[in-house]
């Protein structure tokens, strides 16, 4: 009995610590945009607040007005949507086809190939390959091209996406496909009618993962898009950051919030509809 009570107390204490750890950094993001003259301090925005009494600040919508008036802020969000939707669609489509084939057909050297690509991708998507990628983009005339950027981002995300999706596919029973096959379904019909619906949660998870990756990617668009009208929110954030050598906290906090909301909504939608999880997990 005492053990049980202690166990309960320990459980809730641990959960509380975890909750605090993950919530603390987020507090600023949900308060600062609504306060007049935000600082790094977390203050509760209240109408009429901020008159010397610590912990509160005057509530205001002005920061949002300022962001709306910024010439590149909202268009950059639209650019982010274009880039991440395009990349996610391409990643999911190509990775699903490839993962399916790799899961079902024994191609020689399959596993080694996957691991090598995974290794390369984790390096190339970092800083190491920015020079060759830039030169490549110049050669292929992909500078300032959204399509070019989408292709480059897709190439970087594909290995991990294939790796994770293949795991999903490996854990779905084959008899569904065989059954469809005996009824005369073609391989593409089998993929459309049977495989895609079965691994839909996996596809959704990979889509969210891809969107989140592109949504936050700064280096590649910074490198490859010089036209400020095409730049996504990640790049625009840094123009706010360094304005006049000092961070403009009004714009930064508010834009940061606006910039965060879409991915959060997307995550909530997907996790509600399909469940956001790495289905069978990555096994072996």
């Amino acid at each position: 009995m005492i053990r049980f009570v202690l166990g309960r107390i320990g459980f809730y204490a641990l959960v509380a610590v975890v909750l605090a750890f993950f919530t603390l950094p987020l507090l600023w993001l949900v308060t600062a945009p609504f306060t007049a003259d935000p600082t790094y301090e977390v203050r509760v925005p209240l109408p009429g607040g901020g008159r010397g009494d610590g912990g509160t600040a005057a509530f205001t919508w002005d920061n949002f007005r300022a962001v709306l008036e910024h010439p590149y802020a909202l268009p950059s969000l639209y650019n982010s949507v274009l880039l991440s939707a395009g990349t996610a669609a391409l990643v999911v489509l190509l990775a699903a086809l490839a993962a399916y084939a790799l899961s079902r057909v024994r191609l020689p050297g399959r596993d080694a190939l996957l691991y090598v690509l995974l290794l390369l991708s984790s390096i190339i998507t970092g800083t190491a390959a920015i020079v060759p990628l830039f030169q490549l983009a110049v050669e292929l005339d992909l500078i300032d091209s959204r399509l070019g950027l989408v292709l480059i981002l897709t190439g970087g995300l594909l290995p991990a996406a294939i790796f994770m999706l293949k795991d999903f596919m490996d854990s779905t029973p084959k008899s569904y496909e065989e059954s469809a096959r005996v009824f005369g379904a073609s391989p593409l019909q089998i993929v459309r009618h049977v495989v895609v619906p079965l691994v839909r949660p996996g596809l959704a998870t990979i889509a969210v993962w891809a969107v989140a990756n592109v949504w936050g990617n700064f280096l590649m668009p910074y490198l490859l898009l010089s036209d400020v009208e095409k730049q996504p929110a990640a790049v625009i954030t840094y123009t706010l950051y360094t304005e006049g050598g000092q961070a403009n906290l009004r714009l930064l906090s508010t834009f940061g919030l606006l910039y965060s909301v879409p991915v959060v909504l997307m995550y909530l939608f997907v996790s509600k509809k399909y469940g956001f999880r790495f289905h069978g997990g990555i096994k072996r």
Partner: peptide
């Protein structure tokens, strides 16, 4: 298999 005109219960 689809062209053999057989049906199977797994």
């Amino acid at each position: 298999p689809g062209e053999r005109d057989v049906a199977m219960v797994f």
